[in-house]
Design a protein around this nucleic acid. Structure first.
Lengths: 357, 357
DNA sequence: CTGTTAGCGCCTTCAA
DNA sequence: TTGAAGGCGCTAACAG
């Protein structure tokens, strides 16, 4: 019923082996023969059987990209960028040549689903896996992840981290692109301190994620350097954790304002959260930045359109994603030591200003 | 080297067929035998070979979700929702049971890449394909798409459209969830007309997409119904096409303002474009909504946080995506006639008001 | 309920 | 540069 490689071979009057060779392009074939085969492929409208091919070759052309939340542009931008490097340009015919199938897997932030996806990818004998965004720091989960990744690597799957710190062990088997979340967080708070802010509320992400911890550590580093900390009671009072979404930003900000009506600035875990924070500040009848400064993190595309435009920390998401894609394809060499730190740039805009009085 | 099903069979002292049966759970097996097999699987840390399985069964557990631009939350939300219905809940062990591998493919809006992805998915013998968002109306491309989809369907792949109108032909082979873009566009403009607006600029999407055309048609229907059209010269002057991004919204709005300084409202093709339009209006020293009303489409999460909050048309993206996922899994029956129209709801917020004077 | 037996379609030595 | 042949690991009848 369906056309097989043998059918193509028959029509081109060559052996199946020859057809395989021209299709894979990894072995010398006479130009005239290749012509003939290609014509037969077109005539018959042949499509390679991926599973059969993967079975025989013990590897597939699948590349998995794991993200925590694909509805969040933070991940969408990185994942899309990675795919541009992996999918190949296409030949305009839709015929699909040597391209890999770059594929995004949405874990929803769940450790279980993360492992499940890795198993599924392992099952498919994926050529590479790109893990994006912050990792969960639960030791049991980390151990399970490490074990799984070691197995994948052993089976020949290339592992790339993007916007995620390297694992405690097994660094050797991956290339990691880590964002400088700590440095970015520090510079952001330094900026606020330099404006004169002394009491700063912090809307943090979920406590178990590396991203959350690193950004918060940077924030507190800056406070300490300015002689404003640590005052444990204060730190706790001024910090509220929650998911990386708008609603959490809204509610956490109300909570902070209730606990400490004298705060003059709110730093949010990311731009989406910051948007919620802005809404909460306004709903309390306060003005930004005259009464309260607000800052975010990531510099997502909408942040410049907030009113006032959001002060934030820019992460080169597209560039990092593209580089991760290239690493996954083996088009680019891993950074020295396997890990590269990606700089974060402070973007000062209208949502931050000196405190009143 | 790697553990195979035969190894498991040997350790559990059963035949390979029995192991296969407990793994696939689609055939009666004695409880005690199943126990033994499962233990052997765990002991050996066995992972099914996907390609071999797909080859033998002539189908795989891959489900492809095609999107135009994964960095755009419009698609991210739909795709993420679809994945929740496809990936399965996971069993908490990361072992991966009967789950499908739901996988997002980013076409970048390119017709070639759309076809390439379909070929790749066809090659993998995908169980289902979900196509999201507006289609390109080029006849050659539509013909190629139809042909490709027919082949996929023939091979047993389930086809689902989500937020995309059904194809001119071959309706029978798909389930389609179409957004009421025309109705939404009409009601939005009716709202502006009822406020008293008479000269309304329109920042449209790329001309070749169905979404663009339908929304624009709704807009013009409303104008005509109000006795404000058609005036071809005006329509052309007040409409500017461009990509679905912020920058296009910004530039197109400047252009409209230049061509027709007397417009009192700008309707944007979607919320992202509307954000750019807002920025342009402000940069011209005009106030929203006092001097110019602005409206969007989609009601993405950030739209309510715009200042003033954006009047827009809400599309139930998450619900539609989830339903598409269920259709792709065969968990839900296709709508009668294979096509369902999803209602669009007008959301009136602060960015629209009566024109001055 | 369980075992036996053929392939599924392709890649990859090995020869020619 | 090309052909021949074996096997990749699993599933799906068919017996029992």
């Amino acid at each position: 019923m369906t056309v097989t490689l043998a059918d193509v071979a028959a029509r081109a009057r060559v052996s199946p082996a020859t057809v395989s060779r021209v299709l894979n392009g990894n072995y010398p074939v006479a130009a005239s023969t290749r012509e003939r085969v290609l014509r037969a492929v077109d005539d018959l409208d042949y499509v390679l059987n991926g599973p059969a091919s993967s079975l025989a070759a013990a590897t597939s052309d699948l590349v998995g990209i794991l993200v925590n939340d694909i509805a969040d542009p933070f991940f969408g931008i990185m994942a899309g960028a990675a795919q541009t490097q992996i999918g190949g340009p296409g030949d305009g015919s839709g015929r699909a040549g040597g391209e890999k199938l770059a594929v995004i897997c949405n874990t929803g932030g769940s450790p279980e689903r993360e492992l499940t996806y890795l198993t599924l990818l392992q099952r498919q004998r994926a050529a590479a896996v790109v893990l994006t965004g912050g990792a969960v720091e639960d030791p049991a989960h980390q151990a399970a992840m490490t074990a799984k990744l070691v197995k994948l690597a052993d089976a020949g799957t290339r592992i790339v981290f993007c916007g995620r710190p390297p694992m405690p062990e097994g660094d050797a088997l991956v290339a990691a692109l880590a964002f400088d979340n700590r440095g970015g967080g520090r510079r952001l708070t330094e900026h606020l301190v330099s404006l004169g802010h002394r009491r700063i509320g912090y809307v943090a992400g979920p406590p178990e994620r590396t991203t959350t911890r690193h950004r918060l550590e940077g924030h507190r580093e800056a406070l300490r350097a300015a002689g404003l900390g640590p005052v444990p009671a204060d730190e706790e009072r001024l910090t509220v954790h929650g998911p990386y979404d708008r609603r959490s930003g809204y509610e956490a900000t109300l909570e902070i304002l209730r606990r400490a009506p004298d705060v003059t600035a709110i730093v949010a875990a990311n731009d989406t959260v910051a948007l919620g924070a802005c809404a909460a500040v306004r709903d309390q009848g306060l003005r930004i930045p005259q009464d309260i400064s607000v800052a975010g993190f990531d510099d997502l595309p909408f942040s410049v359109d907030a009113v006032p435009a959001l002060t934030t920390v820019r992460l080169p998401l597209f560039e990092a994603g593209a580089r991760a894609g290239r690493l996954a394809m083996g088009k680019e060499n891993p950074p020295p030591g396997g890990i590269a730190t990606i700089a974060a740039e402070l973007m000062i805009r209208g949502s931050t200003a000196p405190p009143r009085g």
